[in-house]
Design a protein around this nucleic acid. Structure first.
Lengths: 205, 205
DNA sequence: ATGAAAGTTTGCAGAAAGTGCAAATTGTCT
DNA sequence: AGACAATTTGCACTTTCTGCAAACTTTCAT
């Protein structure tokens, strides 16, 4: 019944964190996650290879582990907010409320972004995480709005929000000093609010 | 120098198609791609396992092979259209021009969709294909509009188009008799054109 | 038609991932 | 302390994927 603060639970969390951190350390050190084996990671974290696989299915999951918390917290924030404001604003506010910029150092985020960008398997795994987010968020949104099962609209709104969030985050990671993250997110969401056709429309002969 | 219609080229294409089809056949038969091994596929197609891996890195790539053609053709269509109309319309028209509904049978698409939905590795691989599309399309769009390297707008527009395309396709595959694919795509794109905030906004206390 | 050049297929060896199982170890609770 | 439950570990095994070199097939110039 002890789910919190038993020695056992703390040790588990510590091991998981150690494995995740070891993965990051080795990936940076060797210039790419592909050059790191599960054996390496287990050794670096001081556990057996088998234990590594008890915690994570693969190295990608280990490296992207902390992103799960971001996803969980965004979903929780969305559940809260969707009650008292329109879906689009709830999505925007939920994304802003997570404050990735305060939770992780910009150097860490940049290095991680670099690793992901260079590895197809990491890109792939991250995409899966996004899809999980999408699916769960869709449940929240459809329940809140009472939209029909086959209505495309909730999916389109949610997809747009996800794109806005991802593009804004990537932009901020690449140019952290230009503007605070919250503002970049707000700008990205705003781009969808007035219709997309206009801006990228040069004159034609 | 012969890249077209040499015996060699035709044989290669035939082998690749045979492997891709064998993969689909076995996946359907065994109720999921996970239950199929590379050995199975090679045997079914009448080549060695090593040859399978000469053509495809993994079973996922084999199953999703024909989607590559769709991507290539969409990109080609986009390149064409982006010259004489606004980016957003070019994207929409390019998506419509591919006519997935005429190229594949609805049964095949539905079975494939089912397989993908049930397999994390397939979802993952498909996401990677989407990202490849995104990256290449971004090149086309930025070149056509002369947008700055760090401008979020092209990414947002492109992301929205991708979402519209995916949501429309999924919807049409699930409800093929409701409306023609082209119309569903048009509707999905239209949802972005007038601003997203409105429709999913119930009244609040 | 023939033979050299270029491309393709195959088997084999080997690194690595990932899973099931049972024994050993470690934490929990009375 | 001791019974009970959860965790860690080693081991065996299947599968994926890659490199390499030998065998084979197509191509093309003579």
């Amino acid at each position: 019944m002890a789910d919190r603060s038993g020695l056992r639970e703390r040790k588990k969390a510590a091991t998981q964190a150690a494995l995740s951190h070891a993965t990051m350390r080795l990936a940076v050190e060797k210039g790419g996650l592909d050059a790191v084996t599960a054996d390496d990671i287990a050794a670096e974290a001081g556990v057996s290879t088998r234990t590594f696989h008890n915690y994570f299915q693969n190295k990608e999951a280990a490296l992207l582990h902390d992103f799960n918390e971001v996803v969980a917290q965004t979903l929780a924030a969305l559940r809260d907010r969707v009650r008292d404001r329109p879906v689009w604003q709830a999505l925007r506010d939920a994304c802003i409320s997570v404050r990735v910029d305060e939770r992780y150092s910009i150097e860490l985020l940049q290095r991680k972004e670099q690793l992901i960008h260079a590895s197809p398997s990491l890109i792939s795994h991250q995409a899966t995480q996004f899809l999980t987010f999408f699916t769960e968020a869709l449940d929240i949104v459809t329940e809140a709005t009472g939209a029909a099962e086959d209505d495309m609209h909730p999916r389109l709104v949610l997809g747009a929000a996800l794109i806005a969030m991802k593009v804004a985050n990537d932009h901020w990671i690449a140019h952290p000093d230009e503007a605070p993250l919250a503002e970049v997110i707000t700008r990205a969401f705003a781009a969808f609010e007035s219709g997309l056709t206009g801006p990228t429309t040069p004159p034609y002969p």
